[in-house]
């Protein structure tokens, strides 16, 4: 089991009352899963993803990642865990505008203190794998949305994480580009990468092996 959420709740105080963003979420992810989180706007999909990605805190419940109790971990330890095992893919790609494709890919490795030669070969591998060698010196603004998202996925993958968290990865793309990106995810999943995606689209949902439906912060 890769991770497990037990009775996770998150709320905000509003006018003296608790407004639940998430309430009693329970589920687990095994290695190799491809899970889709579905739900309308405001149902808490992204909040859940952020909690799993350790970018956000929760108020109640237990979160276990690779047998470590995330909610008990020190900040530094948690950051390490996250650095080692989780990769993010965003709807708006979130590439660093000032860096080229190659440099964007390299960035996670810098934070993992990977040596220069190793970084070079890893970046070259990724460029190869995603067929974007010709784009390596371009800046994000010179790429199409689909290409940017490819770079985003490549960047998420480069540190070989166990888990990829994708927040509406095709939300900003047209249907053809979207299909291509989903094909990439399917391929990655076949290679053993665990994928957790948040999506709106019924079509994208079908790529996954399991679906979690959220409505108003609760699992349906």
């Amino acid at each position: 089991m890769l991770l497990q959420l037990k009775n996770i709740s998150k709320w905000v105080q509003s006018g003296g009352q608790r407004v639940f963003l998430l309430k009693d979420i329970n589920f687990w992810v095994n290695e190799g899963d491809f899970i889709s989180i579905m739900g309308p706007s405001g149902s808490g999909k992204s909040t859940l993803l952020n909690i799993i990605g350790m970018l956000d805190d929760f108020d109640q419940g237990e979160y276990t990642f690779l047998d470590e109790k995330v909610h008990n971990l020190k900040e530094k330890h948690r950051a390490n865990l996250f650095k080692q095992h989780i990769g993010f893919v965003f709807q708006a790609y979130h590439l660093v505008d000032e860096l080229t494709v190659k440099e964007n890919l390299e960035m996670p490795l810098l934070y993992k203190k990977v040596s220069s030669s190793e970084r070079k070969s890893l970046v070259a591998d990724m460029l190869d794998r995603f067929n974007i060698v010709g784009k390596k010196d371009l800046f994000p603004s010179q790429l199409s949305g689909g290409q940017q998202q490819l770079v985003g996925i490549a960047r998420a993958l480069i540190a070989s994480p166990k888990l990829i968290l994708a927040d509406e990865p095709t939300g900003n793309l047209n249907s053809k580009q979207g299909e291509e990106i989903m094909e990439v995810f399917t391929q990655l999943n076949k290679e053993g990468v665990t994928i957790l995606q948040v999506t709106h689209s019924e079509k994208n949902m079908t790529y996954g092996s399991r679906v979690i439906n959220l409505l108003d912060g609760k699992m349906q």
């Binding site: 970018l55 950051a79 650095k83 993010f88 960035m107 996670p108 540190a159």
Partner: peptide, 16 residues
Amino acid sequence: AKEVGVRKTLGSNKWD
């Protein structure tokens, strides 16, 4: 701000 966010999701800590 976005750059800071991205860097943090890619493993940068506060000190970096």
